[in-house]
Design a protein around this nucleic acid. Structure first.
Length: 155
DNA sequence: GCCAACGTTGGC
DNA sequence: GCCAACGTTGGC
């Protein structure tokens, strides 16, 4: 099983929104970064665990756990002219943007803020989230780091 | 609101 | 293929 971290802005779509969805599941649309797409397209498997991260808020941090709930499939918003994610260059016969469905698992007992994660940089060496210049919205997380961050909910 | 980091675009 | 300009992300 692979582990992931996925960012979302709570003002747009937060973990409470995910929990409130029918089947507590949502297509993770709007990703328009090739690296992030490749992770979803090539490496995600149903059941993979996800750290749900709130960005662009105070404080940013990991707020819960989700899981991959579908195989990869084309992001429908790329073909919708009314969508802000519409991509006129994407060929319907060879879709450019791929997503997976994400399903709510649970909230952490408390949000674990980015600052605390940074304070544990020694234990979390190599974690992409705290590397300089990181802007990826979908990134892999080592299994040990995943468990470590979840464990921080008890502190 | 600022700005560093970084991806993308497009002229050449 | 280079690189300057521009746009976006996202923490602060």
């Amino acid at each position: 099983m692979n582990h992931w971290l996925m960012k979302s802005e709570p003002d747009v779509f937060g973990i409470d929104d995910l929990k409130a969805r029918p089947k507590q599941t949502e297509p993770w649309d709007g990703v328009r970064n090739y690296q992030a797409r490749n992770f979803m397209r090539d490496e995600m498997k149903v059941g993979d665990r996800i750290l749900f991260y709130h960005s662009n808020c105070k404080p940013p941090g990991v707020v819960g756990i989700a899981e991959v709930a579908s195989k990869p499939y084309p992001d429908p918003t790329q073909f919708d002219p009314d969508s802000k994610y519409f991509d006129p260059k994407s060929d319907p016969d060879d879709p450019r943007w791929i997503l997976v469905d994400v399903k709510y698992v649970r909230h952490l007992k408390r949000p674990v803020p980015l600052q605390e994660i940074k304070d544990h940089a020694d234990a979390l060496e190599g974690l992409q989230l705290i590397k300089r210049g990181n802007r990826l919205s979908v990134m892999p997380v080592a299994a040990e780091h995943f468990d470590y961050i979840v464990g921080m909910e008890n502190e």
